[in-house]
């Protein structure tokens, strides 16, 4: 178990960095080259109209499925973070229950084109208009704004990998059984990030990244608020056709 005793040797930190970068690359759902190549493949007027004509429950279900696919890649990422599988299953679930959506939102900035404010969805790039029938305009604007702000940091894939792991390994989550262990994991990840930023001569990024955490938390609670609003109007839909993993995480 790499966390007993608690090495802080540089070799350990560099090995930890490499392992997290590899985990991110192996579980990133869309390759960066693929996204870059498709960035100008936009939805046509007719395709946009088709999305906007979906009923609210159809669009909610469709987006819940897409979100759940993204979350599954984040679960695989978590499993590959050294020490994560050494945690008790309840703590692994506690970290993922809130952290998975946050990592999805961080990763979304890889799929975002700031030049025309579009996001990669269903194989093409679309604006917030694409999601009009969800009835969650404020949430979508907030999510797109967040993507813009993360893109503005121009993170490398390695930096995004480290930041994603820090978002996930959060010792402040309520109901953790072994908070100390999560804290020790988190400390080594923080050392990794500052080591990496020093190497990249971008130490100012550290503070900007930590500032993103509170925005992430507000986006996640806004999502849960919207889900609550939707499931009151369509309780059967959520119960019968929403992905089971989505329900486990968010209801």
């Amino acid at each position: 178990d790499p966390y007993c005793p608690y090495p802080t040797s540089l070799l350990h930190i560099e090995e930890l960095c490499d392992s997290i970068v590899r985990s991110h690359r192996d579980t990133s759902q869309f390759r960066l080259e693929e996204l870059q190549a498709l960035r100008w493949k936009l939805f046509s007027r007719e395709e946009l109209h088709a999305y906007q004509s979906k009923s609210v429950d159809e669009m909610w279900q469709h987006c819940a499925v897409r979100l759940t696919e993204a979350v599954q890649y984040v679960v695989e990422f978590a499993k590959r973070i050294p020490g994560f599988r050494g945690l008790g299953q309840n703590d692994q679930i506690t970290l993922l229950k809130t952290g998975s959506m946050e990592v999805v939102l961080v990763r979304m900035s890889r799929c975002f084109n700031t030049e025309n404010s579009t996001v990669f969805f269903d194989g093409k790039f679309g604006s917030t208009e694409l999601f009009k029938s969800l009835g969650c305009g404020d949430l979508m604007v907030a999510v797109f704004d967040f993507a813009h702000s993360v893109c503005a940091l121009r993170l490398t894939e390695q930096q995004m990998a480290l930041f994603s792991s820090l978002v996930l390994i959060n010792p402040d989550r309520p109901c953790l059984e072994d908070r100390g262990r999560v804290h020790r994991m988190r400390r080594d990840l923080e050392v990794c990030l500052s080591h990496m930023l020093r190497r990249d001569n971008q130490e100012s990024l550290q503070h900007k990244l930590y500032q993103k955490v509170s925005v992430l938390q507000s986006l996640c609670s806004l999502h849960v608020e919207k889900l609550h609003w939707f499931s009151q109007r369509y309780p059967l839909i959520v119960h019968s056709v929403f992905p089971p993993l989505y329900k486990e995480l968010f209801t």
């Binding site: 679960v75 499993k79 599988r85 299953q89 679930i93 993922l96 229950k97 089971p244 993993l245 486990e248």
Partner: peptide, 14 residues
């Protein structure tokens, strides 16, 4: 309670 998540976590990271 988290049946699916338990199963995903138990699967090997092949």
């Amino acid at each position: 309670k988290h049946k699916i998540l338990h199963r995903l976590l138990q699967n090997s990271t092949s």
